[in-house]
């Protein structure tokens, strides 16, 4: 039984791996006009950042769902993305535009990630320490936190002198089309570090997925692992938000697709599957929309649309049970 499951997991991984590679190749080559020596590095940078984002979102979502022990909460839905945006805005607001421009962008990024980790641990610890028992209430609190962060960021952005703000906007606030390539190296390093840390607690994660009571009775220091994972998740969310801006529902979609595709719930299988699915959706989706339909900025909108629908259906199905 065990062996069979892992064999078919292997097959599934192989298939989605092939599709992922195919979509990357398509992204690099489709519709290319002009010299390859220009296109390859140009598209290569973009592809690399999309893959980083896919990795960061997929891993952070799966880990987050493991520690919160459900399949509908994601860091983005709980407002993590917007918290990062807010912190970024606060930094610019307090330091002033001139100072912020003068700081080395990579250093700035590291400061932001550190602040983000600290804040989110303080803010979300009480929510996930089991004090809110009702899942729907927890989600709603997260969603409203997201709205609050977004409104606060919006307000601060308006308080910054509008002229200065325009200058800063491009540099600070990324989207799928204006991926911030300054941060690729530092992001890769951070992702590498978090992956190593996550790898070390791999088996504990499988136990965590059984739920708090079970994990505790099996001798896992639930609280400590929760805090570690929350910190890892925060770093990953910061990376993806810094690279392409907030994407609310992407993690939800890819994580659930991975759960559906994989016959086991072991992190060893689910995590790579989620990453591959994320690459397919992001790179493949971008290729289709950009090259075939010439819809430039539509990917994040399509994700919001599909993700929102999925979320409603999931809630309704859950309510029926």
């Amino acid at each position: 039984m065990q062996r069979e499951a892992s064999r078919s997991s292997g097959t599934v991984l192989l298939v989605i791996g092939v599709i992922a590679v195919a979509s990357m190749v398509a992204f690099m080559t489709l519709g290319a006009r002009g010299s390859w020596s220009f296109i390859l590095p140009f598209r290569g940078v973009k592809l690399f950042s999309l893959v980083l984002v896919a990795y960061a979102i997929a891993v952070s979502t799966v880990l987050f769902q493991t520690i919160t022990n459900n399949r509908i909460l994601t860091p983005s839905i709980m407002g993590f993305d917007w918290l990062y945006m807010l912190l970024q805005t606060i930094l610019v607001f307090t330091l002033g535009a001139a100072t912020t421009s003068a700081i080395e962008p990579r250093l700035l990024f590291v400061i932001e990630v550190a602040a983000m980790t600290g804040f989110s641990l303080v803010l979300y610890r009480f929510l996930f320490s089991g004090s809110v028992r009702e899942l729907h209430l927890l989600i709603l609190i997260g969603v409203v936190f997201g709205t609050l962060f977004r409104s606060l960021a919006g307000l601060l952005q308006r308080l910054i002198d509008p002229n200065e703000f325009v200058v800063l906007q491009d540099r600070l606030f990324a989207s799928f089309n204006t991926v911030d390539s300054n941060l690729l190296v530092i992001s890769t390093v951070l992702i590498g570090l978090t992956s190593v840390a996550a790898f070390k607690i791999f088996h504990t994660l499988d136990v965590m997925a059984l739920g708090r009571e079970t994990a505790v009775s099996l001798g896992v220091d639930h609280r400590r692992i929760t805090m570690i994972v929350l910190a890892l998740v925060t770093v990953l969310v910061s990376i993806s938000t810094a690279l392409v801006g907030p994407v609310t529902f992407f993690g939800l979609l890819v994580a659930n697709l991975a759960y559906i595709l994989m016959p086991t719930a072991k992190h060893r299988h689910v995590l790579p599957a989620a990453v591959l699915v994320a690459i397919i959706c992001l790179v493949g989706g971008q290729t289709i929309l950009e090259r075939l339909f010439a819809f430039d900025t539509a990917l994040s909108i399509v994700i919001e649309f599909a993700g929102g629908l999925f979320f409603i259906l999931y809630l309704l199905r859950g309510a029926h049970r």
Binding site: T297, V302, I312
Partner: peptide, 23 residues
């Protein structure tokens, strides 16, 4: 709390449609 949650998400989906066409 499920009720406003569904409402907010429905709003998000409708908003995505609007943004799509606006873009």
């Amino acid at each position: 709390v499920l009720v406003p949650l569904i409402g907010l998400m429905l709003g998000g989906v409708i908003n995505a449609c609007t943004t799509f066409f606006a873009y």
